[in-house]
Amino acid sequence: MRYYEDLEVGAKASFGRYEVTREEVIEFAEKYDPQPFHLSDEEAAKTFFGRLSASGWHTAAMTMRMTVEHFRTNRQAGLGSPGIDELKWLRPVYPGDTLRCESELLEKRLSASRPGMGITRGRTTVFNQHDEPVMTFVANGLIRTRPAA
């Protein structure tokens, strides 16, 4: 288990592999982001996307899945997140793309109001199979400090 004290500012991690399918792109869009360019090849061809593309929110959800899997493998004493900053969709994500993540811990500090808790900020960049960044964001995290012996 990794605690606040184990985290080093500047530390980087590469993780995840997510294959984007046409079926999933359409299913997500139908349920959560039913814009025509996420649902129809014909409508998408009329936009700058050029073809059917995943919702940016779907890209964020796929990234969350990869992140949770990474945390399951590399257990941390995480306590959730108060939010994210600077979310940017840089390139469209298309069916057939394979996504992966890279993260860097930007800063950490102890909570002034909650003993036993640290606060982190880290940047995550999501890449496609061509190593092109498709999304980036800065996440704020909460993590336990190491219990007293």
Score class of each variant (00 low, 15 high):
residue 1 M to W: 11
residue 2 R to I: 15
residue 3 Y to K: 06
residue 3 Y to G: 10
residue 4 Y to A: 14
residue 6 D to P: 11
residue 7 L to G: 03
residue 13 A to V: 04
residue 18 Y to R: 12
residue 18 Y to E: 13
residue 19 E to H: 14
residue 21 T to I: 01
residue 22 R to D: 05
residue 23 E to D: 09
residue 23 E to W: 05
residue 26 I to T: 02
residue 29 A to R: 01
residue 31 K to S: 12
residue 32 Y to H: 10
residue 32 Y to N: 01
residue 34 P to I: 01
residue 35 Q to S: 14
residue 35 Q to V: 11
residue 36 P to Q: 07
residue 37 F to A: 07
residue 41 D to G: 09
residue 42 E to N: 03
residue 43 E to M: 04
residue 43 E to L: 14
residue 43 E to P: 08
residue 46 K to E: 11
residue 48 F to H: 13
residue 49 F to I: 03
residue 50 G to F: 00
residue 51 R to D: 03
residue 54 A to E: 02
residue 55 S to G: 10
residue 57 W to Q: 11
residue 58 H to F: 12
residue 60 A to S: 15
residue 62 M to G: 08
residue 64 M to I: 15
residue 64 M to H: 15
residue 64 M to C: 13
residue 65 R to H: 14
residue 65 R to C: 11
residue 65 R to N: 14
residue 68 V to N: 12
residue 69 E to I: 09
residue 70 H to V: 11
residue 71 F to Y: 13
residue 75 R to H: 12
residue 77 A to Q: 11
residue 77 A to I: 07
residue 77 A to F: 05
residue 77 A to H: 09
residue 79 L to M: 14
residue 80 G to T: 01
residue 80 G to E: 00
residue 82 P to D: 12
residue 84 I to M: 15
residue 84 I to K: 07
residue 85 D to P: 08
residue 87 L to M: 13
residue 90 L to D: 06
residue 91 R to D: 07
residue 91 R to I: 03
residue 92 P to S: 13
residue 92 P to T: 11
residue 94 Y to T: 01
residue 96 G to T: 03
residue 99 L to E: 03
residue 101 C to G: 10
residue 105 L to F: 01
residue 107 E to H: 05
residue 109 R to A: 10
residue 110 L to N: 10
residue 110 L to D: 08
residue 111 S to D: 09
residue 112 A to Y: 01
residue 114 R to E: 00
residue 114 R to D: 07
residue 117 M to G: 02
residue 118 G to Q: 02
residue 124 T to P: 00
residue 124 T to E: 03
residue 129 Q to N: 04
residue 131 D to E: 14
residue 136 T to A: 04
residue 138 V to M: 03
residue 138 V to F: 04
residue 138 V to T: 10
residue 138 V to P: 06
residue 142 L to C: 10
residue 146 R to Q: 06
residue 149 A to R: 12
